[in-house]
Design a protein around this nucleic acid. Structure first.
Lengths: 167, 167
DNA sequence: GTTGAACGTTTGAAGCACTAACGTTAGTGC
DNA sequence: GCACTAACGTTAGTGCTTCAAACGTTCAAC
């Protein structure tokens, strides 16, 4: 992630313009916007000793209650292989607890601790701030339009194929 | 990239809903949309034996004429380390030519071949089709609005910080 | 002329999505 | 009851992409 100005060593004296074909290419703009979002949100959450996946898991637990790791995987879109390490991080911070499920000994029941719940609350505020920061140049109306359109894209492509995620 | 349905082994019988907090989170929706775009465009270009960076470089050459590798880097946002391999791929396919610059022996002048030019033309059609495919659920008007908003986001964040790219 | 910077290139680190396989445990059909 | 299939958590590892560091070479400025 580097500005167009310093991808090479430094600009000599050229125009430095991006080709017209790329300038307004939706897929490219989406990639750029997503990268910006990643940067803004990633940095903001890191400053709060958190990551987007932390928020996703905490939110899932906060809204649906205790769940198995596999259920968390499905709801958040995080691979169950990666969920292991993620939950370790959250457990280290005392935000969740893993206990074996007595009803199904294959499973762990993941529970939000009190600290985790208050942390989620804090992160809600952080997130709101970051999203606001990200969308600064858009009016309230436009933000809604944007979200609406993106939801429609998501829904459309969900039929024909898979997705990845990102907070 | 996997649908929510099969992130784990398979869904048991749970609700499978994503938390409300994540559902409409702009940064998340952008990441999802960008991933979809990547998938659609990536697959489409791959079917045409191409990649998004190929298109970016060819477009840059087509619009601004022959250029050094560094200039291409700056214009496309591709790191000059990665440009080397990229240009190798394009040269293998006979789409570009690298010749030492007589005026500056540090540089290579990268030129579009005739084949490259016609290939660019073909890819224009492919891209148009892919973008259309990507934005299917949006009206013409909405597509313009979306692009406009994304451009504004790009412009805004370009001031405060860097970017990555993507076709 | 010496110094600083841009050039193309190689190498490799870091993070990410993703796959494969494992031992364990549960449900399902028979 | 018992085989069979499948989900569970976990470990290990692959492949891709972005990005950083360093190299010898060539140029420009002073």
């Amino acid at each position: 992630m580097v500005s167009a100005e310093d991808t090479g060593d430094a600009a000599a004296g050229e125009t430095l313009e991006t080709p017209g074909r790329l300038e307004r290419l939706p897929s490219r703009l989406l990639a750029i916007a997503a990268a910006e979002a990643e940067r803004v949100v990633g940095a903001g959450l890191a400053a709060a000793d958190s990551r987007k996946w932390h928020y996703a898991v905490l939110a899932s637990l906060g809204e649906f209650g205790p769940a198995s790791q596999a259920a968390l995987s499905r709801r958040t879109g995080i691979y169950r292989s990666d969920m292991v390490g993620l939950l370790n991080e959250l457990a280290e911070r005392g935000l969740i607890e893993r206990t074996p499920d007595p009803d199904d000994r294959r499973r762990n029941v993941v529970t939000l601790t009190e600290l985790g719940r208050s942390r989620l609350h804090d992160l809600d505020a952080v997130q709101a701030d970051l999203q606001d920061q990200l969308l600064t140049p858009l009016s309230t109306n436009e933000r809604e339009q944007l979200v609406e359109m993106l939801l429609r894209l998501r829904e459309h492509h969900a039929r024909t194929s898979p997705d990845s995620w990102g907070t």
